[in-house]
């Protein structure tokens, strides 16, 4: 089938402002949107620029706005978006070129919540024990692939880039609810700040955008409740 693909283009080194290029490509209905982009890049316009790697939804490279919603280009089929599609970069980060946005601030926020196990006790010879019930408490948030689809779908984040954003909070949740983690003082300071979890307005765009099906909003709600109930 023939698809019409409208893509937002911008190269800050040569273009004054972003513009749209329209391409037509012959693809199968069962092809991924990523295949459409590849077809255009390989056989029509080599200058079209986007990130991609695994092509089956586990690496998180190709998050972008497809028909107004954040999706992974490799996890949406052409037949599900129809024969006209508009593709734009994610919102809220500087565009480096075309669909590629600057991910450095995203990873900085991720690092800010101390996304690693903190346990200063000497480790045993074998594994630390954890019951299946305790393990289940943070299972959902371990699925995160750091694609930024959630953070860049979040209205509070668009208007205020200081907000640590859903992705960082998902990863904070993953350690806050890990029974093996002992000290998260710095983590708590950041997430309980004005630009931390309290800036979440339960908009649910993040949950809708997550390609891994993580209940992002709920993760942030669990963090809020924990902060409240544990306050003493």
């Amino acid at each position: 089938m023939q698809v019409t693909c409208k893509i937002r283009r911008y190269n800050p080194t040569v273009d004054e402002k972003p513009y749209f290029s329209v391409y037509r490509a012959e693809v199968e209905p069962t092809d991924r949107v990523l295949d459409v982009l590849n077809t255009i890049k390989w056989y029509e316009d080599g200058t079209l620029t986007y990130r991609r790697s695994c092509a089956h939804g586990v690496c998180g490279s190709d998050a972008m706005r497809i028909n107004g919603r954040n999706r992974l280009a490799c996890k949406v089929l052409v037949r599900d978006v129809g024969n006209r599609m508009t593709i734009e970069p994610m919102m809220g980060f500087k565009v480096l070129r075309d669909l590629v946005v600057d991910m450095e601030p995203f990873f900085e926020k991720y690092k800010a919540v101390k996304p690693y196990l903190i346990n200063d006790e000497p480790a045993p010879v074998t594994e630390r024990l954890q019951s299946p019930e305790d393990r289940a408490k943070y299972d959902d948030t371990t699925k995160c692939i750091l694609c930024a689809a959630c953070t860049t779908s979040c209205p509070p984040f668009w208007s205020n880039p200081d907000f640590v954003g859903p992705a960082a909070l998902v990863n904070a949740h993953r350690f806050i609810f890990d029974s093996r983690d002992q000290r998260g003082a710095d983590r708590a300071a950041i997430i309980s700040d004005r630009d931390g979890v309290w800036r979440c307005r339960t908009v649910f765009n993040c949950t809708d955008a997550c390609p891994r099906g993580i209940q992002v909003t709920n993760a942030m709600e669990e963090v809020k409740r924990k902060l409240l109930y544990d306050r003493a």
Partner: peptide, 19 residues
């Protein structure tokens, strides 16, 4: 594998809490 667990890797667990 034990080192990975100490690094925080969330292995699935047996009822006794082992990997």
């Amino acid at each position: 594998v034990y080192e990975l667990e100490h690094f925080g890797l969330p292995f699935s667990r047996t009822p006794e809490g082992k990997i």
